[in-house]
Every structure is written in structure tokens, then in C-alpha cells.
């Protein structure tokens, strides 16, 4: 269930005051966003006045969000807050009820059909362990949309697939059946599949779930390196605040509406607490009296 976030320590949008951060305004509506530290790059992702509802149930309301080209946007929020719906909208699997999404100047569905604009790593990949396919075939399937019907794969794309396998440490597993892989190995194969078409936008849905700390560190380092190499823009949806704040240039706190959209360093602890309070209560953890106030969350990384 969505919760309404009210905090006496935070100014409301209607007051029009900033939170002592240059140019950003905490709001439940439209939001003015400053240029990030990577400079004023044009947005690769532009979301305007977005609403989405399943029937009569609103899931996303009046969302305004931009993701600058070459940046990493972390999206956090409680269960039911609309993160997965946002991912489905970005990957063209759902259409907005109202408003617009543009990715590289195209509707998400058009961007997806190009085959080389969006790479996607799903949260719970459905992999049939008995399917008669090996690692190399799984990765090169990521080129199917780019190659198009009635055409084979480009040799340079196949060479890039091989190089990705080597970088991700799965080249030796190339001929192994997909069902024989461990969880970590499978994750790396699916990352390779998401990147093999050299997309412009990479959408990661809970990518560090089920991975140990060492694996998470390696994953974050890999994404940072590949992002530089491919000039990727990354949208990273996660519950893992540590991973999100360490990777992201900007964070969006999403709970039906957008409650924060700025750099991680200025993310108020009080806001995060309130955003996840319903999850804590659902887990039987009673909230402390009153909201957290005072210092911001100690953040890892930037």
C-alpha cells in the first residue's frame, strides 16, 4: 500500500523551498533538477507527467524524471511503490496511462524493437534449466533483435560477445548447458546477454539480490567499467541502499510519486526511513517513536 510521506523536518513542495541543496526541490509533483556532477548532458530518458494504473488502482502518479546520458540513476522505494512498474514501462512491456516516456527520443517500444537501445537484466530471470542451450547461445540470443528477422548475426557482434564472455569470466563455460551454471555464473551470463547488443540504456532490476558481498563489489566494478566503455546510461532499481548509493550519480525515491530526485549525498535519512516504514511494519518490526532526524545517512561511495 502506498504511504503518504509527511515530515515536519522537510519542506513541502508548496512552500517552494529547497533543502539547502542548489536547485533541487523535494516534491510530490514536478521537480526542478540541477545538472548532475557529470555535467549537463542531454537526457537519454525523459519521463513527463507519467501516470500508470492497473484498472482503477494507481501505481505511478505524475512522475517527472530525467536520466542524463552517461549517468547512473538509482531507483529505490518500498514494495508496491511502482519500481517494477517503472521498469516495465521503460522496457516497453507496459504503456503509460497518461504522460510520456522517451528513450533516446523514441517511445520505449520503438527503442526496444531497434534491438540495440535497451539492455535489461530482470529481477527473477526465468531460465529453464532443462532447455538445451549453452552459454554462448544464451548470450548471442541477446543479438536476435538487433540482427533482425531473416538475418544472421554480425561477425563483429559475435566477436564482441566473445570478448564479453572473457571479461565476465564465463568464456570457459561457453559450451556448457545453461542449466549447469551456479547462480553467480548465470547472473554473469545474463549480464552479458543484456550488454551484447551494445545498448545505450541498461536497466538493472535488483541485480545484486542473492549475490554475496564480494560478488556485489565485482558486479559494481564491472558495471562502472562497461559504462565508461559503452557510454552507457544505467537505471538501477534496488532495495540495496548501499549498492544504489555507491553506484548512482542520482537517486530517485519512488513510492507512487517521486519523493526525491537528486544526488545520493543529500538523501535524508528521515525520508528513507519513512519510505520503508511500511515494509518494516509488514515484517513485524515496530517503528521507533517519531521520525529520524538529524544527520543524513552515512553513505558509501560518492
Amino acid at each position: 500500500m502506498p504511504i503518504t510521506i509527511e515530515s515536519p523536518s522537510l519542506p513541502s513542495a508548496r512552500e517552494g523551498r529547497s533543502m539547502n541543496r542548489p536547485g533541487s526541490i523535494l516534491a510530490n509533483g514536478k521537480m526542478q533538477v540541477t545538472c548532475s556532477k557529470i555535467g549537463c548532458m542531454p537526457p537519454l530518458v525523459s519521463i513527463r507527467s507519467l501516470d500508470f494504473a492497473y484498472g482503477a488502482s494507481p501505481v505511478l502518479r505524475n512522475l517527472d524524471l530525467t536520466v542524463e546520458a552517461g549517468s547512473t540513476m538509482g531507483v529505490i522505494g518500498p514494495n508496491g511503490g511502482g519500481k517494477t512498474t517503472l521498469v516495465k514501462l521503460l522496457t516497453g512491456r507496459l504503456q503509460p496511462t497518461k504522460g510520456s516516456i522517451l528513450i533516446d527520443g523514441m517511445r520505449p517500444l520503438d527503442a526496444v524493437r531497434r534491438g540495440d537501445r535497451i539492455g535489461y537484466l530482470p529481477q527473477n530471470p526465468r531460465v529453464d534449466a532443462n532447455f538445451p542451450i549453452n552459454v554462448r547461445q544464451t548470450i548471442t540470443l541477446g543479438l536476435a533483435g538487433k540482427a533482425g528477422m531473416l538475418r544472421g548475426y554480425d561477425r563483429s557482434d559475435l566477436a564482441y560477445a566473445q570478448s564479453l564472455m572473457e571479461r565476465l569470466g564465463v568464456a570457459e563455460l561457453a559450451d556448457e548447458p545453461i542449466g549447469s551454471l551456479s547462480g553467480g555464473q548465470l547472473q554473469r551470463v545474463l549480464i552479458a546477454r543484456a550488454l551484447v547488443a551494445k545498448p545505450k540504456l541498461l536497466v538493472l532490476d535488483e541485480p545484486t539480490t542473492g549475490i554475496d558481498v564480494r560478488g556485489q563489489k565485482a558486479f559494481i566494478e564491472f558495471i562502472a567499467a562497461i559504462k565508461e566503455e559503452l557510454h552507457l546510461t544505467v537505471v538501477f532499481v534496488s532495495h540495496d541502499l548501499r549498492a544504489v548509493t555507491s553506484m548512482s550519480d542520482r537517486i530517485a525515491c519512488l513510492n507512487v510519486s517521486l519523493h526525491y530526485h537528486d544526488v545520493p549525498q543529500h538523501l535524508p535519512a528521515d525520508l528513507v526511513y519513512r519510505m520503508f516504514a511500511c515494509d518494516l511494519e509488514a515484517a513485524g518490526i515496530k517503528s521507533t517513536a517519531g521520525p529520524l532526524t538529524g544527520p543524513f545517512l552515512p553513505l558509501v561511495g560518492k
Partner: peptide
């Protein structure tokens, strides 16, 4: 034969096939 990769991808994971640009 001609649509081999599309048919295999859709059999393996139709949702991901669609997200990769396969019709």
C-alpha cells in the same frame, strides 16, 4: 531454419526475447 534464433529465443524466454527486440 530462417527464423531459428527468434523461435529458439521465444521458446527459451518469450518475455526477454520481446525486450531484446524480437517480435
Amino acid at each position: 531454419w530462417v527464423l531459428w534464433k527468434e523461435l529458439v529465443y521465444c521458446a527459451f524466454d518469450a518475455d526477454m526475447a520481446e525486450t531484446s527486440g524480437v517480435r
